[in-house]
Design a protein around this nucleic acid. Structure first.
Lengths: 150, 150
DNA sequence: TATCAAAAAGCAACAAGGTTGCAAAAATGA
DNA sequence: TCATTTTTGCAACCTTGTTGCTTTTTGATA
């Protein structure tokens, strides 16, 4: 395969996959790399397009699930029927994702970003309701779109 | 059809459908009625189950889209790939939904509720980011589940 | 580096969710 | 009641996601 060398060279000695106890495979390296390059959130479909015909659809699904389980990526809720995934910046582990950041959806470029801006919304839930986890979705115009073409 | 009388009797003179300039049909009445009874959010699948084999799948999709467009219901983002819909309590119109309420997802009974609790999260977005709309998703235990079985 | 068990990838087939075009049926207004 | 417009139902299709099983690859060991 032509792209293999390229993939390998981009992986440093401190392989995040090994750190999480995962065996290192082409698909995992490639998908992890896509997330690191992107800086935004990716859907399964995005990855399928970017990875070309390199990997089977099922492999991508399973890799995403594995990354989720290991706390490498987290899922971002959306209203358009396509789950988005992004790298976890904090130290998330299996079974506990701890994110207190905002998910920002740009209505112009349609990208979704994680803003590492620890926000605790001022919650006053009605009596009886007990909060465990909070996700703040903000729709608006992102930095790039705001500066590029006003 | 056996259930038709029942549906009609539940519709008062002040038909919300007519108010929004929609023609009144069985499916629209029935689906609107389901939302009013439910008090929680419904997915397309939920409606399909509750409506039985009364309506075609496609009709339900189109009715939901129409209700969305007219500001009768709003979509709630979720992380499990099933868009939820709930009635708009405030006066929403075509092309502008204005909700400042929390969406509460109960991790026990799996229902999603709109808490009409006007919350403005303390947002400090990084420079350049411009917020238009905010959606707060809270996962936790709802009132009923908290009191019923502790 | 050759070997081997365990893990992951690929393949096929399937299920669910969602969309589109078109003909038949129902709702609205005259 | 009639004609026009809107909506429904149907069929067919596409996308997204899942499952079982076989083949390939990985990582550890000799």
């Amino acid at each position: 395969m032509a792209g293999k060398k390229q993939i390998e060279s981009a992986v440093s000695a401190q392989d995040p996959l090994k750190q999480k106890g995962l065996s290192v495979t082409d698909s995992r390296r490639k998908i992890l790399q896509l997330f690191m390059q992107q800086k935004g959130a990716l859907s399964h479909g995005d990855i399928e397009k970017k990875a070309g015909a390199t990997f089977d659809r099922v492999t991508i699904y399973r890799t995403l699930q594995t990354f989720l389980d290991k706390g490498i990526i987290h899922a971002i809720p959306s209203a358009n029927n396509a789950i988005l995934y992004a790298l976890c910046h904090e130290q998330c582990g299996p079974d506990h994702h701890d994110h207190q950041h905002i998910h920002f959806i740009c209505s112009r470029c349609k990208h979704t970003f994680c803003l590492d801006h620890s926000v605790t919304p001022d919650l006053h839930l009605p009596k009886g309701y007990q909060a465990q986890d909070i996700d703040v979705l903000v729709k608006g115009v992102c930095k790039r779109c705001n500066t590029t073409s006003k």
